[in-house]
Design a protein around this nucleic acid. Structure first.
Lengths: 204, 204
DNA sequence: CTCCGGTATGCAACCAGTTGCATACCGGAG
DNA sequence: CTCCGGTATGCAACTGGTTGCATACCGGAG
């Protein structure tokens, strides 16, 4: 269970965040490798407050907004958890199950649907990849790292490595999607009266 | 929710399987991209039987063993679900959260623990990759596909594409692990009194 | 002034997945 | 004969995650 620890991390990075802030940040940075809905986040924050890991104060003005900060106990827990090992993440991809189902069923009418799903997957990978590459170009080009302390540079390098995981993941997803589409095209040239289609499949 | 459909697929591939058989097969083939415990499988089989997707008979001999088969309604459901789209799988990797936590905490004592976790991850990827490559060499070399019907060849190609997903995933995980280890070594040569360690990092 | 969209929080119900345990039958080793 | 490990099934409790809904406050457009 790492959601509370992801939240603690987020609070260490930027103290005095509200549940809403955290939810939005989960939609961008941390959300790339750990998703959470706002309900989950609010619930978890309440639990963490009860456990003494975080504390909250009402935001100035008469809103309902509450801002949280990480307490020493929370920090200690985060250190403990970070050092502790864990089992590798489970892979669960319904598209692969669908492909296997199509293979087992042996009905050729399904390949059209699978092709569509693969194309969608491909564009998703390409979009994610492009956004990651933009972040990399913006935040992790060598010039930006001159006037920093060693500790800052360390953290920067770590964050870059994390981003690289995302980039590699999307690249391999993109490459596989293309390979899969080529394989489907090769066996099922359903509206490929044009002989050029075969060539497309070859050089992909 | 794809567990019932993964089970239906498994039953279409090999009818007259018991819950135990299915659980074991999930530990090998399908389990590479969809894990399930035996309790989950038994519960799901009971639900599916209630829904009229599968039927079961007692196995010969006086054991408690029950063997399941897929009913036409189950097959129809599987076709329907395969054609239907779905959102891409969520990525949730605690190791990346841990790295981000280490970066935020800025405590250098954590990098040793992270290095150990990365090395473990690396060997896992290498092991998985090796086993996938063995399967690929055994089942999907070009010679094996000569005396087959077109439908069989189609299914074979599909299964190969699925395996390729696993291979690419493990390759990119392996490559990233190496990259991450090199990055950690570069910044934190904690017991690298030996200058050779720097070389190790370079050619990884 | 009122409605709307964005900010902000939260409850309740449900579903999926995990963990721990219990049961039973079988065959072989000791 | 008994114990043990492998086959085989299942219940119960719990945790994590999703979905749907409700509430409230604010500022700007109409």
């Amino acid at each position: 269970m790492s959601l509370p620890h992801a939240l603690l991390t987020s609070l260490v990075e930027r103290p005095s965040s509200s549940g809403y802030d955290l939810a939005r940040r989960f939609d961008s940075s941390i959300g790339f490798f750990w998703r959470a809905s706002h309900q989950q986040i609010y619930r978890e924050l309440a639990r963490m407050e009860k456990a003494g890991w975080v504390a909250s104060d009402e935001a100035p003005g008469h809103t309902r907004k509450r801002v949280y900060r990480c307490l020493p106990a929370g920090r200690r827990e985060l250190v403990r958890w970070t050092a502790e090992g864990g089992s590798p993440p489970v892979v669960r991809d319904a598209l692969l199950v669908r492909m296997r189902a199509a293979a087992a069923l042996g009905s050729p009418d399904l390949s059209g649907a699978l092709e569509a799903q693969l194309r969608e997957r491909l564009t998703q990978h390409e979009a994610a990849l492009m956004s990651y590459r933009e972040i990399e170009a913006r935040d992790f080009t060598s010039e930006r790292r001159s006037a920093e302390s060693e500790a800052q540079a360390e953290a920067e390098r770590m964050r870059h490595v994390i981003l690289r995981a995302g980039i590699r993941f999307e690249e391999s997803g993109r490459d596989w999607s293309r390979e899969a589409l080529a394989a489907l095209d090769a066996r099922d040239p359903h509206d490929a009266h044009d002989p050029l289609d075969a060539l497309d499949a070859l050089d992909a």
